[in-house]
Simulated scan of single mutants.
Amino acid sequence: MDPSTLIPPADAIPAAPWLFRALLDTTFTVHLLFMNAMLGLTLLGFVRSLRPARALGQQATMVPTATALAVNIGVAPLLFLQVLYGQFLYVSSTLMAVYWFALVLAVMAAYGLAYRQKYALHKNDRRGTLLWGIMSALFLYASLTQTTNAILLVRPDLWSGYLGDPGGTLTAWGDPTFTPRWLHYVTAAVALGGLCLAMIGHGRAKRHDPSGEALKAEGLSWFGWATLIQALDGVWWLVSLPRPLMLAFMGGDHAASMLLMAGLAGTGLAVAFAFKGRLMPAAAAAVFTVAVMTAMRGVLRQLYLTPFFDPSGLPVVSEPSTTAMFLGFFAVSIAVVAWAARHPKTDPKGA
Rank of each mutant, 00 (worst) to 15 (best):
T322M: 14
I229T: 10
E213A: 12
A106S: 13
P307R: 03
A331T: 12
D157L: 10
Y90M: 15
I200C: 00
T65I: 15
P315H: 09
T147C: 04
L197Y: 02
A66T: 13
L121S: 14
D233C: 15
W173R: 13
L220Y: 06
G112D: 02
G194K: 00
A270T: 00
P180K: 12
A66H: 09
L81C: 09
S160N: 12
I73W: 08
T42Q: 07
L121E: 15
L269G: 15
L303W: 04
L130I: 15
V299N: 10
M250Y: 12
L43V: 13
P14S: 05
Q87M: 11
T42W: 00
V30H: 02
G128P: 10
V75L: 11
A351G: 10
E218M: 01
T65P: 00
A12I: 04
L105S: 11
R127M: 13
L140Y: 11
V71H: 10
G45L: 01
L152V: 06
F80N: 02
G350Y: 03
A262H: 12
P17K: 11
R48S: 03
G266I: 11
L6A: 12
W173Y: 15
A53C: 08
T323H: 09
T27E: 07
Y99I: 00
R48H: 11
L140N: 07
T61K: 08
A15G: 07
W339G: 05
T306C: 03
I334L: 15
W173Q: 07
V91L: 13
L56Q: 01
D310C: 08
A217C: 02
V316R: 03
L6T: 12
L41Y: 05
K206D: 14
P77V: 05
A12C: 03
T171E: 00
V154M: 03
L228R: 13
V104T: 12
V336H: 05
I229A: 06
L260D: 11
L105H: 07
I151Q: 02
F20A: 01
L131R: 12
F326N: 05
P3D: 09
W237H: 14
T346H: 10
A114V: 02
I134C: 05
F178C: 13
P156I: 09
Q302K: 12
H202W: 15
V337D: 00
L44N: 00
K206F: 09
I73N: 08
A142M: 03
F46G: 00
M62D: 04
A110E: 06
N124F: 14
D310T: 10
G40T: 07
P8C: 03
L215I: 07
A286F: 13
L84G: 00
V71S: 02
L158W: 02
Y85I: 09
G234R: 01
L232C: 12
R48I: 00
R51F: 07
S333C: 13
G194Q: 04
D233P: 11
P311W: 05
R297F: 01
L6E: 03
L6N: 07
T67V: 14
